[in-house]
């Protein structure tokens, strides 16, 4: 059998597109359907209620506070991960003994299951056998053990740290990719012109790395918005709702409050937010390679 040339590209991308349609789009359609009904527990049936769930959700303060938390979550993660990754990438872009080993093994934190990540940090931050409190006391930063998950703000910050700990090495490697692509002779020329290290960074590294950073920011945003397991397993959205981001709210509404339809409405709204962001952002990512 011979495919006409014009159809060939579709044969190549068809399987991937169909796969994603079946696994992502079709369930999403079902979620939309669910959000227009009044189903409570899984497995029961509901009747049509139109847009009632959306009305309910949009007038509920919890939804907006979760949306706000999600926004803060995404931004703080982006900032922390970018800073950590940039520092690490700049360091790993130097020549020193063992640089290849360091470049390979920095991703150690990313290749272990999230459940394990959560358990490790739960132990390390606890007051029973955890190392963090004694270390901070020794360093003179605190004078008595603190409960990292005891207050909404510290719990949130701690989760941002844990999530960034897991993801920053991955971002580091992507940045390293950007860095290695900056031609070395640019630096050489700058050095001859007498530019100091800071000037070389601000005039060469930063401008040339900025597009990479932009792309990574988009990816990072999408990745961290969807983080659910770390938060759920660590704090279940607490204390006092202080870490209840949108994915946590969706899960909680569906499986703790048994309001499937309401959860579906939140989910559809969250999808809209994210898609809106992605549509704008992918303008950047989706430029065809030739057009660059």
């Amino acid at each position: 059998m011979k495919l006409p040339r014009t159809l060939l590209p579709y044969a190549f991308i068809g399987p991937a597109i169909l796969f994603l349609a079946a696994l992502l789009v079709w369930p999403l359609v079902q979620a939309v359907v669910l959000s227009l009904q009044d189903v409570r527990s899984v497995g029961t049936t509901g009747k049509w209620v139109g847009l009632d769930n959306y009305r309910e959700v949009l007038t509920d303060g919890t939804f907006w506070s979760s949306t706000w938390l999600s926004l803060v979550w995404v931004v703080t993660n982006a900032v922390l991960q970018t800073v950590l990754a940039l520092l690490a990438a700049l360091a790993l872009n130097q020549n020193f003994p063992g640089v290849r080993i360091a470049r390979t093994w920095i991703v150690l934190t990313w290749i272990i299951p999230t459940v394990v990540v959560v358990m490790i940090w739960r132990w390390l931050f606890s007051t029973s056998g955890g190392i963090v409190n004694p270390l901070l006391i020794q360093a003179g930063i605190i004078d008595r053990p603190v409960g990292f998950f005891a207050r909404p703000n510290t719990a949130f910050a701690t989760l941002v740290f844990i999530n960034s700990w897991r993801w920053f090495p991955f971002i580091t490697l992507m940045m390293l990719a950007g860095l290695t692509r900056i031609p070395g002779d640019l630096y050489e020329a700058a050095r001859i012109d007498g530019a100091g290290p800071w000037k070389r960074f601000s005039r060469i590294t930063w401008p040339l790395l900025a597009p990479t950073l932009g792309v990574l920011l988009v990816i990072g945003t999408l990745l961290s918005f969807n983080v659910f397991d770390i938060i759920w397993l660590m704090t279940s959205g607490g204390p006092a709702g202080g870490t209840r981001t949108l994915p946590v709210l969706i899960y909680e509404t569906a499986f703790k409050s048994y309001r499937m339809s309401e959860a579906a409405a939140v989910a559809v709204l969250a999808t809209l937010f994210l898609m809106g962001f992605a549509v704008v952002a992918t303008r950047w990512l989706a430029r065809p390679p030739e057009a660059r």
């Binding site: 597109i17 696994l23 992502l24 789009v25 999403l28 899960y251 579906a264 989910a267 994210l274 989706a286």
Partner: peptide, 24 residues
């Protein structure tokens, strides 16, 4: 081409928790 490519990228922006129940 571009539309389809963007559709794939949009899938990347998918809140995975959304499809847990329907997929089940």
């Amino acid at each position: 081409r571009e539309t389809l490519y963007r559709a794939i990228l949009l899938a990347y922006a998918f809140p995975s928790i959304v499809i847990l129940i329907p997929l089940f």
